[in-house]
């Protein structure tokens, strides 16, 4: 296990270098001069030249890339053109809010998705199965930002039950709509995956044995079948958790949620490229780490899996 972990960590290095290279490349192709972007149009040529030298922007690209790697390893993602604060600090301030939303979303998605998937599998080829699967596909096809607006219109504007936006005092009522918005699409994917995995498991001999022993349907499904269907479900859940960063860009914008996604959108509106590039890189690192954690979790879920 330890050896596998080390091997995976070593394998992550070229991928992370590639990620750094692409974010570096993005900074290179951005329109306009980076110093002018940073200082505004009013800075005079002399100041611009001095800063260019100070930041080593007149070095060849490969030297600049190595400097960029060095800065990133020290946790320096540059400064926001707008607030002039370190991007890494600003992202760290926003991430806990997004993590809170992501955890709530995961709870919504896993409860809804797994239960609906099981329901469809148990009633396989009946009208329940077909209806549930059509609805799952409808939710997969619904844009997350539009679904959020519909929920706001129904539950906040028309019924007045839940707040429209923001985090307010941090109470749970502010979390409900954003978590449902982000979680519904995810739960639809999960329901489809749970259904097909459960169908495979239910057909196996050990389930027939469990049934022939006279065990109740509830025990057979939840204790025997679900346990064995967990690996693909956890894979989807784990990767979805990281992909909530994607969804958070749109969901946090709709709900004015002060997290990572809204931070990126505000940076887009102000063309604050340092923030965009830094956020993309952090997003990729979270993705890579989530992937690793999902792979490591297989061993805990299924003791037969060995990391040799």
């Amino acid at each position: 296990m330890f050896e596998y972990l080390i091997r995976r960590l070593v394998m992550m290095i070229p991928v992370l270098l590639g990620v750094l290279f692409i974010t570096f490349l993005l900074m290179f192709v951005i329109p306009g001069d980076p110093i002018t972007n940073m200082m505004g149009q009013r800075a005079n040529d002399e100041v611009i030249e001095r800063i260019r030298k100070d930041l080593h922007l007149d070095d060849p690209w490969y030297i600049q890339f190595f400097n960029y790697i060095g800065r990133t390893l020290r946790g320096d993602l540059g400064q926001s053109f707008v607030t002039h604060r370190p991007v890494a600090v600003e992202i760290l301030e926003k991430l806990p809010n997004t993590a809170r939303l992501a955890i709530s979303t995961m709870i919504v998605a896993s409860i809804m998705g797994i239960l609906i998937g099981i329901l469809a599998a148990v009633f396989h080829n009946t009208w329940i199965d077909r209806t549930v699967m059509v609805f799952a596909l409808i939710f997969i096809s619904t844009p997350v930002f539009w679904f959020g607006l519909i929920l706001i219109y129904i539950f906040s504007i028309t019924l007045g039950w839940l707040p429209i936006s923001g985090m307010g005092d941090g109470s749970i009522k502010y979390l409900i709509l954003p978590a449902i918005t982000l979680g519904t699409r995810s739960s639809a994917f999960l329901a489809r995956m749970t259904r097909s995995t459960m169908l495979e498991v239910i057909r196996q001999d050990f389930i027939r044995t469990a049934r022939s022993k006279g065990l109740s349907q509830k025990i057979v499904i939840f204790k025997h079948a679900l346990k064995n269907a967990m690996i693909p479900i956890i894979t989807i859940l784990g990767l979805d958790f990281a992909s909530y960063l994607n969804g958070s860009v749109l969901t946090e914008t709709i709900f004015g949620w002060p997290g990572f996604g809204r931070y990126v959108v505000q940076a887009i509106n102000k063309r604050d490229f340092q923030v965009i590039a830094g956020s993309v890189m952090i997003g990729a690192i979270i993705f890579v780490v989530a992937n690793l954690l999902v792979d490591l979790s297989y061993g805990f879920l299924d003791p037969r899996i060995r990391y040799d």
Partner: peptide, 24 residues
Amino acid sequence: MRFTDVIMSFPGLLLIIAMRVALG
């Protein structure tokens, strides 16, 4: 395949946004 891994390790929408902002 390593290049594919690198592209796949980005959250898609974030990379699309960054590229679209960078390209104009």
